[in-house]
């Protein structure tokens, strides 16, 4: 199954993310962010980082989760290869990412994602699929 798709948005970057479960959706969203930032085949799962985030509903939770995911790189220069969500409900998500610190000699930055926005953020659930939509400032 396709994990995410990028769509065009004036000065910015929109992303539609898919998952069979809410956990899937969130881990695919984290994957998508780093898949856009860098070539993930060059990133090794050498360290892990834990993420615990709260929100006031699915949309708010997704934005807060992605803000945290993005800070891994923007604040800590950490590139995440995969993300595993261990607990999730509408107001809280617990996850663990694995990856390594950015190394300018090994990793190329394809695109800078500067911030996650609340604009048109959406999480929708159908019996077989969870879909999320987020717009990033790039």
């Amino acid at each position: 199954m396709e994990r995410y798709r990028v769509f065009d948005h004036t000065a910015d970057l929109g992303m539609e993310i898919y998952g069979r479960t809410a956990g899937d959706l969130f881990s695919n969203a984290a994957f998508a962010v780093f898949d856009i930032i860098t070539d993930l085949s060059q990133v090794r799962p050498r360290e892990t980082r834990d993420i615990v985030v709260e929100g006031s509903g699915w949309e708010d939770l997704l934005v807060n989760f992605l803000r945290e995911v993005l800070y891994l790189f923007n604040g800590d220069s950490f590139l995440s290869k995969e993300c595993f969500v261990s607990e999730i409900d509408e107001v809280r998500v617990v996850g663990r990412v694995s990856g390594e610190l950015f190394d300018p000699f090994r990793h190329r930055i394809h695109k800078e994602i500067k911030a996650v926005t609340y604009h048109q953020v959406m999480v929708r659930k159908t019996p077989e699929l969870w879909t999320g939509k987020v717009i990033f400032d790039v």
Partner: peptide, 29 residues
């Protein structure tokens, strides 16, 4: 990055307390 983070931090904080403003916002941003 400093400016971005300040905006990001305060935006999230203000979104969290959106209900206390006493009027409906047409856009969370």
């Amino acid at each position: 990055g400093l400016g971005y983070q300040v905006c990001d931090d305060y935006l999230a904080l203000m979104v969290k307390h959106i209900g206390e403003l006493g009027f409906p916002l047409p856009d969370r941003q």
